[in-house]
Design a protein around this nucleic acid. Sequence first.
DNA 1: TTCTGTTTAGGCGGTG
DNA 2: CACCGCCTAAACAGAA
Length: 483
Amino acid sequence: MPVLSSPDMANKFKEKWLAAFPEDQAIGSDSAPLDDSLTSLHWLQNFSILNADPERLVGPVPECPSSQHHFVKRLGFPRAGTDSPSSPPAGDTAAAGMPLYPGSPVTSGSETTAAPPRFSICAHPVPGYPQIPVQANPPVEVDYKTNPKVKPPYSYASLICMAMQASKQPKVTLSTIYNWITENFCYYRHAEPSWQNSIRHNLSLNKCFKKVPRQKDEPGKGGFWQIDPQYADMFVNGIFKRRRMSANHYSSSSATQRQNKLLQGFHSTQNTCPYQMVGGKRKHLPSKEHSKVMRPTESPLLAMEANKADILKGDFDLASVFDDVLGGSCSTFEDLDINTALSSLGCEMEVSMHGRQHSTGMGRWCGSGDMNHYQSYSYLDLSGASMESSMNMGELSVPHIQQPLQRQQQLEQDQLLLGHHHLQHFDEPATLFAEQPGEAVLQPWEEIKEEPQVIPLSLDQGFGLYEGFFTEMQQWERVESYL
DNA sequence: TTCTGTTTAGGCGGTG
DNA sequence: CACCGCCTAAACAGAA
């Protein structure tokens, strides 16, 4: 199988793209005026894939001549400013946080502190963008904050991670984790306290969690817990990814079949109690149906991660990826990112675990790369007009971005979105939560100076941004034909 | 006494 | 079928 480096892929991609869309040729030059309105990421923040109209994937977009919009429009992205209230995700890896149906977790609008992820079929109409017919099934929602019957589809490890992130503290106590879980998941408020045993068990047994002894001058019981930086690479986008995933696990057909299977299972068991009383004790139903439906253990994100190596090798099929995504195997961008989930929970993504808080919580990590080698993490600030690409890697975070650099990064971010420049990024061993500066290779913050390229998105970085689309890795042949 | 933390064991489901 | 990940239960010890 031919393996192309990312620059090669980018060039080939560019050639093919320009061959297909020669009108984009003029966009890449520096002289090309940039439409600021096109740099807004509001559409992305509100984007729901279900709003996408596949019919718009082809053909010119008269009102939007820029390549970025060109690209976006072909993807069926809604225009900036359109209302596409997708919901925050609650990704899970181990348990996968995957919606049980093609929808996205949503939160109660009134939530201020932390809202339980819930899922719903998200097909909000976008003005000017006909809805994609979703499922004939009625919308269903699971509000984990108020629904005590449905067990959240998150592994304990993920719950712990979520609690750690939400706490905004570099280290949390066991009781903090308990409180966060019970506060955000009604199920655990009503469940037998044995789940706390499982939490403790998970903390102790899971190498991803590291115990930090309480200082002698610190009052209280027990120690603190944090994510072990050595295992931070298992913590991607706020979720654990452990379960083995086959390379073609998420082929279009299988993904669709599984989705349907999950849908069937969900609709048959929605709002049914996942446990039963056995001998006065509440017992979870051990049926396979419940296991599959109530605790899905797979997610597009996992498949995405598992396939990132293939992405880097060029082993992907753009068309099939888009087809699959737009076909419903993935509902929204947010489904792929737990950051937004926590943001929606009122819990800003705590990128830095040691006090360096990001300027805003309206951002997300875009990761790409081979988890076993190097990962590129890009933090996209989606808070609005201001965007920055900071590579704050926990304690080994890059030097705090100064104002001029922020401006530079914003420009670069804008340019990325316009496809004119490579996203400033770091390639380094994934260490989201490095505890000590010396525990990981620290890459100096430096600008990536490259010639502007006339490509919609550089493959390396653009895929980081649009990684959600690349959950489906298909045969090389189709890529080859595209290249 | 309660909470915290560790360890062991078994079951289940997914994956290779 | 073996292995792995996850869950659950239980026992036990130590600290507050």
